[in-house]
Design a binder for these strands. Structure first.
Length: 458
DNA sequence: TCTGGGGTCCTAGGACCC
DNA sequence: TCTGGGGTCCTAGGACCC
């Protein structure tokens, strides 16, 4: 059975979040910066119109931005996370099948809305020309679908303040393409959505879609494809799938088939997360081990906290340190090391000690380290791991009493920190002062998640 | 010196996504 | 001077097994 898949994508999400609570900024250009106020990671439509590129280092546009009255914000992920939750919650009224793809996007499976009371699907018909590919959807279904898309985009903006675009198609890749078309053509059509169902409609849209805009085709592949004069999504969709698999990989073959309307990336039950990373660049480079231990201990503690919040445990841990990859004049070093825990864990003391041990093995002096990261590997459900763990012999390296003590300690710390603010309690290894990576000069209040930051109407 | 034919598992690296 | 962070998947190649 064919499907009807929608992709709802927030417009300039971070920038839109910032504007919701500042109506006075409604028509001003606004950019949001990455950690350390490093790069531009989001731009309002007005900022895009000024020609500020995505990913541009802030220092390069600083004076230009000032001269044009651009509002500059540091990333406020607590605010964005909460706004994202509101958008998703709003979406779930139209279908139970909402697959959150990223902080600002979700796939909706709307197929169920088009099955009539007798169980007949009123969706896409097979193409009478060849049984394998898709024909159009019935006229009436199409009209209903347009109405639905108009309603979804309108209500989400009304309820959350976040403008969204929507793409609809028989596969995820086509829904993605449709949402891009919706964004690009909104000014001309006055619609915040686009449909990509019939063969003719697809051929026309894909012919106008540059290959690098296709979901799953990145910069490198586009370059390679361009050598063979494959420049649009349509060029690509017309290739032989088997050849594509041979020349590239199964992923690209799937992308190709999805462009033709064959469902390859289904809305499946979400796989459990497999890894969890915390990493940051430092405001100033660090060259000695003692100083480097503090941020790494912080990342390790944060990893442990996140593991517990998600009720998962890690079987292993990786620590990575690196010098700047921009500065060509200083010696470079980019290394990582990993180790397994004797049993999967999410306890801060244990993760902290392994992280520091790995770091000490990794460290070499004579370098200016600019980044570090700690990754929990092979994460699994906590309850599952616990039940497995009891099947094995007691662990000599970390007796059960110690584990139990750590568990209580961590849960007490989590409670205290959630009540008294992040890092009210922390481990000595994390270092009391944390100046290294708090370089955010233009942070907005957490309007929706902090009682002290509620917006005030006068 | 010459030296088979399968498997599996793990890791590093490269590609992609937002 | 100043350049983000957190994920996933696939493949190739090496180690190891019989």
């Amino acid at each position: 059975m064919s499907r009807i898949i929608g992709l709802v994508d927030c417009d300039s999400f971070f920038a839109s979040c910032e504007k919701v609570f500042r109506p006075d900024w409604a028509n001003r250009p606004l950019v949001v910066l990455s950690n350390n106020d490093g790069c531009v990671v989001a731009r309002s439509p007005e900022a895009k119109a000024l020609g500020i590129p995505m990913g541009e280092p802030y220092f390069k546009i600083k004076s230009f931005a000032n001269s044009r009255g651009v509002v500059v914000r540091s990333g406020n992920y607590e605010l964005y996370g909460d706004m994202s939750r509101r958008v998703i919650q709003t979406l779930s009224q139209w279908t139970p099948s909402v697959d959150v793809y990223s902080i600002d996007e979700a796939f909706l499976d709307l197929t169920g809305r088009f099955v009539d009371s007798k169980g007949n699907f009123r969706g896409i018909e097979d193409d009478p020309m060849d049984g394998k590919s898709l024909g159009d959807i019935p006229r009436q279904t199409r009209e209903e679908l347009e109405k639905l898309a108009a309603e979804i985009t309108r209500i989400v903006e009304k309820w959350t303040g976040i403008p969204v675009s929507m793409g609809l198609g028989p596969t995820r890749t086509l829904a993605k393409a449709a949402s891009r078309i919706a964004k690009d053509s909104a000014a001309a059509t006055g619609k915040k959505y686009a449909l990509l169902f019939s063969r003719r409609e697809r051929a026309q849209a894909l012919a106008n879609l540059p290959i690098e805009k296709v979901w799953g085709i990145g910069r490198r592949l586009s370059k390679t494809l361009a050598l063979g004069k494959i420049e649009t999504a349509l060029d690509f969709a017309r290739l032989d799938p088997r050849r594509v698999r041979e020349d590239f990989s199964i992923v690209q073959e799937k992308t190709l088939r999805e462009l033709r309307g064959e469902l390859m990336f289904d809305v499946s039950t979400p796989e459990p997360q497999k890894s969890l990373r915390v990493s940051r660049s430092f405001a100033d480079p660090i060259s000695n081990l003692e100083e480097l231990e503090k941020p790494v201990a912080n990342f390790a503690a944060k990893v442990a906290e996140k593991l517990r919040a998600r009720k998962i445990v890690a079987a292993g841990l990786q620590v990575a340190i690196a010098t700047s990859h921009f500065n060509e004049k200083v010696p470079r070093r980019n290394v990582a090391a990993a180790a397994n825990f004797s049993k999967p864990t999410n306890s801060t003391p244990e993760i902290l000690s392994v992280a520091l041990r790995l770091l000490r093995g990794l460290f070499a002096s004579g370098y200016d380290y600019k980044r570090a990261g700690v990754t929990a590997l092979a994460t699994t459900d906590e309850e599952f791991a616990r039940s497995q763990g009891y099947l094995f012999e007691p662990d000599p390296t970390r007796p059960q009493e110690i584990r139990e003590r750590d568990r209580k300690l961590c849960s007490a710390m989590d409670k205290i920190n959630s009540g008294f603010g992040r890092d009210a309690l922390f481990f000595a290894a994390q270092g009391a002062a944390k100046p290294q990576f708090a370089n955010a000069s233009f942070v907005s209040p957490c309007y929706t998640t902090d009682w002290n930051s509620l917006p005030v109407a006068r």
